[in-house]
Design a protein around this nucleic acid. Structure first.
Length: 394
RNA sequence: GGGGGGAUGUCCGAGUGGUUAAAGGAGACGGGCUGUAAACCCGUUGGCUCUGCCUACACAGGUUCGAAUCCUGUUCCCCCCA
């Protein structure tokens, strides 16, 4: 807890980079000498309130700083969200109203607190509107800092510029604003994914220009998503949200390629020692259990695993399945549509392909209409994992 | 202000008057296999009252027997020149 060297080694063990070299250890040492906490910054974007495992990598690192007694400063980018970031190819990002930003920020905080410690000494939440809502005068002074050539060095800008793709002035200004956040809150350390490297380092330039000590930058590798190839992101649909039900977390984790087991455990801080020395199947199950316990609640891992085994290993029908009322004569495609939220055509297709079962038996593809009484209390199944119990209504 | 390019199904992306509900890929879904909701193989993938009908290629009109494909206008996006 008080040895800067081992603390630094611990904190950087799974980080992508810590810049400049050795700076973190010095910081930690200075903190001990001066008897103060480090201020560890993370900027968050209030436009996407769903926290997934990709975010957890960085949050987990923040948690480790907290556990060592340091103070995490979350910066809600409310001001920047109000302006609307045109970043990347997503042409027009919606400009959020103050109410939406508030709601998103709160949602994010609630979720982030499943990883972070919510103690007044260890967590500080700020809005960058507090200081970015500045005068033109102040802004222009700031605007002297970045040099266009420097901004153009940044990889994605360089590529887009070379390729004749648009870059808005606002995008150019973003790193500056983000860097100014570091000035405003006196960041000692800033965390982010490797994709944020430029912005994080740029924060140092802004700090220097403002006569402040330059922050140490710690970047974390990006977590590969469930598809096993691209970084986890909501828009790619390869994410696992930390508020998802345990069954979902478990199942989707079981779906990741085996090569991802160790990187995930490492970056997410999951302990797989219970499956030490065992094969990928057991190790993956241990990982899935650990994630459920961590995010859905203690004990949820066991439960999710049991349910998973029953469903996929033993091909049994799960016990708590939702009820669905039927009445009169039933058109099966319509029933599937109602019960599972697919279109009737999709339902019809599934029947044709043998993907619909009633009480475990494949439904014959010719039969599309049936009297409700014939399906009384039957279990209707679509595919491998969607079930509904039919009850007569009225 | 001037010139040019573009807008296609969930996404990417072919297609420039006629078997085009629209190639191909991704994704998704179903089936097989499996330790797995992985990999791999096979199939499906606009909607519907389904051997047919309806709606679709930015929007609105027009030309034509017939258009995503040609014309006119509108909207939005991008590039270049000023």
């Amino acid at each position: 807890m008080s040895d800067p060297r081992s603390d630094a080694a611990f904190l950087t063990r799974n980080a992508a980079t810590a810049q400049p070299a050795g700076a973190l250890e010095q910081r930690l040492k200075a903190a001990v000498d001066e008897g103060r906490q480090l201020r560890v910054k993370l900027g968050i974007d209030p436009t996407a309130p769903d926290v997934h495992l990709g975010h957890v990598v960085v949050l987990q690192k923040l948690r480790e700083f907290q556990d060592l007694g340091h103070r995490v400063v979350l910066i809600v980018g409310d001001y920047t969200a109000r302006v609307g970031d045109p970043s990347g190819r997503s042409a027009t990002r919606p400009v959020l109203s103050p109410e939406e930003i508030d709601r998103n920020a709160r949602t994010y905080q609630d979720q982030a607190l499943r990883v972070l410690r919510n103690e007044p000494d260890l967590l500080e939440v700020r809005r960058n509107g507090e200081w970015l809502d500045m005068s033109m005068d102040a802004f222009l002074t700031l605007a002297r800092i970045p040099k266009v050539a420097q901004l153009l060095e940044r990889d994605d800008f360089a590529k887009r510029y070379a390729g004749g793709k648009p870059i808005s002035l606002l995008e150019f200004v973003y790193p500056l604003l983000q860097g100014y956040d570091s000035v405003a809150i006196d960041a000692d350390v800033e965390l982010g994914g490797t994709d944020q490297t430029f912005n994080l380092l740029f924060g140092r330039d802004v700090q220097r220009a403002e006569g402040k000590p330059e922050q140490t930058v710690l970047t974390m590798p990006l977590l590969v998503g469930t598809d096993g190839s691209q970084k986890m992101s909501k828009s790619l649909g390869n994410h696992i949200g930390i508020t998802e039900p345990a069954g979902e977390i478990f199942g989707r984790t079981m779906r990741i390629p085996d090569e991802l087991i160790d990187p995930w455990a490492d970056l997410l801080g999951m302990d797989l020692s219970s499956a030490e020395g065992q094969g990928p199947r057991e190790r993956k199950r241990a990982l899935a259990r650990a994630l459920c316990d961590r995010f859905a609640g203690a004990g949820e891992g066991e439960k999710a695993q049991d349910a998973f085994d029953r469903l996929f290993k033993d091909r049994e029908i799960p016990d708590d399945i939702p009820l669905h009322g039927i009445t009169g004569s039933v058109h099966l495609p319509a029933l599937l549509a109602d019960a599972f939220g697919v279109s009737r055509s999709e339902g019809r297709r599934s029947i044709t392909q043998g993907g619909v079962r009633v009480n475990g038996d494949t439904w014959p593809s010719e039969r599309l209409d049936v009297d409700a009484h014939e399906l009384r209390d039957a279990v209707l199944q679509l595919g491998k994992r969607r079930f509904v119990k039919l009850v007569i209504e009225g």
